[in-house]
Simulated scan of single mutants.
Amino acid sequence: MKSMLTSQLGESLEVLALAEGGEPWLAYLETDPAADICHHHAWGPIFARTFGLQSLLLLHRTAGEIDGGVPLIVFDQPLTGKALISMPFLNYGGILGRDEAVRREIAIGCRELLKRIGADYMELRHTGTGLGPIADKTRENRITYRLDINRPADEIFKSLRKQLRTRLRRAAEQNLTPYLGNDRLDDFYHLFAMAMKEHGTPVMPRRFFESVLAHLGGHARMMIAYKDGRPVGGKLVMQFKDRATMTWGCYPDRYKHLLANYHLTWELIRQSALGPIHTIDFGRSEPGSGGHDYKSNWGPVEVPIFVDYLAADPGKIPNLKPENTKFKLAIAVWKHLPLGVTKLVGPHLARYFA
């Protein structure tokens, strides 16, 4: 017998465990231009192993064929209540559908799923197009940046702004050694822990990245820059279809002068140009932030992110922005803790900061 969380939600909608989406769901993702690595069914076992979180997949079928759906993680936060998020810890997620009618039907199913699970709200991270008036609330304060690299590397370099070309030449003068692969997690994680401490954010558990590299297979790789054998900067690159997304960048302040971020970004572009990757996704940032300034400098197309909320009580949708006074003090304290303490305590707290 199917459980309450693995059941039908009408004639066209079905709820199952995300990992059970398997090849049929992956085949649909290949056909939907809005689909991203964040929709992949492998996140089910990744979040289960790392945080013990339950994951769901709400599927829409027409004549037995999948033509839409949304992956969801059941997320219980002490400060904000029980939520369904698509997708936590990731830039994107949200509802996919063959057309607007399918997406609308899935959104209606999402409301029913909220009731069945007894969750307080649902957060859906859409790119390009949001739910519009269907949503109870929408945040539009972030964008992502996508650069077309389906051309020769020298042509891309010449198209960059003069100031950026100068920085890339300076980065080359640092004699950094780039690494691309999956077997130097200790170096990457040390850099990541340092960077998260400086941001005032609890560091993700090491086993999270172990799971990402294991379950996403060839879709995920680490990039690390070395100076005289010492790791000085890194990022994790996830590839899906013809897009490579840069995420979890880690560039500690003490090494910023080495320009490792510029070096690794250009190395990824140089290696990928005219290959199967046609687009580099720089990840999300808020307009006016340092991240925005860095990413927009490469001349990408800016794509809006719509974080849509559906809620049992629209008046009680939580404020999860860092400027919320609940988080300001915690961020300030975290920045001043010893690195060893943040690496020990952070993984136990990170699950509450999706």
Rank of each mutant, 00 (worst) to 15 (best):
G94D: 02
L268F: 03
Y121D: 04
A312Y: 11
Q8Y: 09
E20R: 11
G68C: 02
I46M: 03
T247A: 14
R165S: 01
A225P: 01
T245L: 07
T31C: 03
Y294M: 08
R170G: 08
Y309V: 09
L59V: 11
P287R: 09
R221E: 11
R116N: 08
R161E: 12
R61E: 01
S55L: 07
H39E: 09
Y309Q: 08
R167E: 14
T201N: 06
T138I: 15
K115L: 13
L268N: 01
M223W: 13
R165P: 00
H263R: 10
Q77M: 14
V232I: 11
L349F: 05
R61S: 06
I117D: 02
P24T: 03
E155V: 10
E267S: 09
F157C: 00
V307Q: 11
E30F: 00
M1K: 14
S211G: 10
L147Q: 07
T247F: 09
V102S: 01
A83P: 02
L349G: 01
L258A: 07
H199V: 14
A260P: 07
A17W: 11
I156K: 06
R221K: 13
G64C: 08
A330E: 07
L18Y: 01
Q163C: 09
A354Y: 08
G299C: 06
A354I: 06
L26N: 11
Y309K: 09
L56S: 01
H199N: 13
T31P: 00
D293N: 15
K326D: 15
G249F: 09
L13I: 06
A225I: 05
L5G: 08
T177F: 08
Y189I: 03
V212P: 00
R206Y: 11
G21W: 05
P347S: 02
Y145K: 04
Y294V: 08
I95N: 00
Y294E: 07
R116A: 10
R98C: 04
L5Q: 13
Y121F: 15
L124P: 00
L259D: 05
T129H: 14
G200R: 10
P78N: 09
A19S: 12
L58R: 04
K235H: 14
T129M: 13
G68P: 00
A214E: 15
Y309L: 08
P152G: 05
Y251D: 09
H41L: 13
G233V: 09
H336M: 12
Q239I: 15
S12M: 13
T247P: 07
G218R: 10
T6N: 10
W334R: 04
T342W: 04
H126M: 05
M238S: 08
Y352D: 04
K227R: 15
I108W: 13
Q77P: 08
P133Q: 14
L168T: 06
D67P: 01
Y28T: 00
E23K: 12
